[in-house]
């Protein structure tokens, strides 16, 4: 399970000659920095990673904002059409995202959102919304009404009840939902590669897939960019791993 990750780093640090004329060393080499930096020259690594970060952060913010509202309404109110609303969310979760590729493309053509990172933010947020809502709703379901009652004695409006009473209690679940949304935006390829043709707007996922398909590609360079692309996500993930699991399982795993 750990070997491929090691091999990515190993390949990034190998020279092209080592890869193609002799068997790749099983141990890490640290002598090929100059060749690597030459191969990376002309690859817009910084702009690729910045674009990915833009998409990921935008997706996370929009998803969390909308899904907290959604989850609170579904958890705390009884109203006509609640079942229908929940079912609608559930079914968008079940349908593969790829099936919306064509109509969203034509929609974005009309709105001028093709070749626009904001378009990808909207797409990724739409697909992250259902799962995020379910995670947060499960967490709100677990909070006793009495807590809110206490806050409602002084007749504060519901939105402030939500932000003052509920939000601090469901932070682990919000973190879990946020990580899922962030990863969805950070690594997404299908919509990005179909919608973004402008080189300056490429996120890292698209840049990498184009880089590897070019003739005479340098595998160490591809792997080096992969490492830079993966490292922030892996670090982030290991850092918040505990919260992700406790947040995800707040409602799901009761046994």
């Amino acid at each position: 399970m750990g070997f491929p990750t090691y091999w990515m780093i190993n390949t990034a640090l190998s020279s092209r000659q080592q890869l193609f004329t002799e068997p790749q060393s099983l141990w890490l080499q640290f002598t090929n920095w100059s060749e690597l930096s030459r191969d990376l020259d002309g690859v817009p690594v910084v702009s690729m990673l910045t674009n990915s970060a833009f998409i990921a952060i935008g997706t996370t913010v929009l998803t969390i904002l909308l899904s907290v509202l959604c989850a609170y309404a579904l958890s705390r109110y009884k109203f006509h059409g609640r079942g229908a609303a929940a079912f609608l969310l559930f079914s968008t979760q079940m349908v593969p995202q790829g099936v919306f590729l064509i109509p969203i493309y034509t929609l974005f053509l009309g709105l001028g959102l093709v070749n626009n990172l904001w378009g990808l933010v909207l797409v990724n947020a739409a697909f992250s919304l259902p799962i995020s809502t379910f995670i947060i709703k499960a967490a709100i379901d677990g909070i006793p009404y009495e807590l809110e009652e206490a806050a409602r004695v002084d007749n504060s409006p519901p939105l402030s009840t939500l932000t003052v009473v509920i939000l601090p209690l469901i932070l682990p679940s919000i973190a879990a939902a946020a990580v899922l949304a962030f990863f969805a935006g950070w690594g997404e390829l299908m919509y990005a590669t179909t919608f973004i043709t402008d080189r300056a707007e490429w996120p890292a996922s698209v840049g990498l897939s184009v880089l590897v398909s070019q003739p005479g590609v340098s595998m160490p360079a591809v792997m080096a960019v992969s490492v830079m692309f993966a490292a922030p996500a892996v670090a982030f993930f290991l850092f918040v791993q505990r919260h992700i699991v406790s947040g995800l399982t707040a409602g799901a795993v009761k046994g």
Binding site: G2, T5, M8, V212, S226, A230, V234, F236
Partner: peptide, 16 residues
Amino acid sequence: ILATPWAIPSVAAALI
């Protein structure tokens, strides 16, 4: 180590 692959973006994973 076992948990790491989940956080690696699919494109990078596929390229490895």
